[in-house]
Nucleic acid binder design. Sequence first.
DNA 1: AGATCGATCTGAACACTGATAAGATTGTCA
DNA 2: TGACAATCTTATCAGTGTTCAGATCGATCT
Lengths: 225, 225
Amino acid sequence: MESKHCIDGIIAALKKTARPGKQAGERKGYHHGDLRTALIHAAEDLLAERGAEGFSLREVARRAGVSPGAPAHHFSSAAGLLTEIAISGFDQLAADLQRIAETDLPPAERLQAQGIAYVRFGLKQPGRFQLMFRHDLLLPDNDRLHAAGKTAMKELEETVRLYRTAQGRPADDAEVMRLCLAIWSMVHGFLQLTLDGKFAALAPDGSIDAFVVSELPAIIKATWP
Amino acid sequence: MESKHCIDGIIAALKKTARPGKQAGERKGYHHGDLRTALIHAAEDLLAERGAEGFSLREVARRAGVSPGAPAHHFSSAAGLLTEIAISGFDQLAADLQRIAETDLPPAERLQAQGIAYVRFGLKQPGRFQLMFRHDLLLPDNDRLHAAGKTAMKELEETVRLYRTAQGRPADDAEVMRLCLAIWSMVHGFLQLTLDGKFAALAPDGSIDAFVVSELPAIIKATWP
DNA sequence: AGATCGATCTGAACACTGATAAGATTGTCA
DNA sequence: TGACAATCTTATCAGTGTTCAGATCGATCT
């Protein structure tokens, strides 16, 4: 009995890490085995390929080799599936920011690095990033989603507090919040405008990402030296 | 002959300003008379009610009292109609910014006022604003759209140039561009995050607009004094 | 071991969407 | 008046998310 349960756990873990089922038709029988995570993986792939607007729940089911009605047994709706992906996106973002917070860089450089990391995150995963800020595609009032978003922002908040105190300026909650909103807004807007192609004319050779990554540090450092 | 054409012009002008056809069934006969502008008005109303995601070309046709296929004779596609609305949005935004540029405020206050005007524009017309930055819903490579966007940004650019020279700091093209990107990114990101509800937790009494309008000036002035 | 039962998936609906094409209608112009 | 081009209707197509009765399967209980 006990050994059986143990083996089941190992098998389930192997299935998750091995990422099977990406090819349709790999299924053993009527039951998929781990459809929930297979759907999430398929959705992440689709999001990476076509962006948030090219997403389609039926296409995800198709890629998982399953009928259009199958996802309903694992997610309340398309928004439910997308919400999971948005949550893991905020988790990844928080991890990226935390990695910088744990360095021994001076506060100013730490702040700048976090801003750059925010933009890099969005450039690497445009579809996922834009999804994270499309509340019309996500479940409203989802506690885990809100919590994940706040966790990511806490990373920035702590850095801002250090930055202010290192500057010898007041670091009360109101001042910290204002600077948080300021830098978050700037990197977020910069990223959104980039992803929407509004800076296309500024990059002569057509490589927007290169332009963005080269100009952004100068912009941030000029604003918050 | 000539008087007839003249009268036709007057009638057409009256129709445009009077905004008829908002109620379905007001049509005289088989032909609508001024369906193109009626569709634009209906689309603007729908956008104001349900936002960019609630938009539907069929619903617009329904509101104009016309069949689903009718819009195809006036716009190449749904994106064609939405592009017209985005263009007029950039025109309005440019006018708002220009109104401030024509005042005799000192450059710093002028810059701050333009940032605040940008956010106010988006708060007043959230659906239209978000549409303006959803290139997946608009016609790609539309010259008039790109031109309208650039015109709006020129208003900001001139103010930035004044601001830099008034500060006695270098105002070459590269520096002006960087500051333009910085302030545009911040107000744009601030607005996007607000409209996506990411600041909802910060406004205690639930009135986000009031919170935003009260905090934004402090944030901008703290960043660019 | 065998029956049962809940979880899982299918397949077919339903009500939508945007786009397209053939035909009906109308205004205009020669 | 007749012809023509612009305009609008109607029907159709392919696609979407969601729902639901029924098929299938794994696991659990007797």
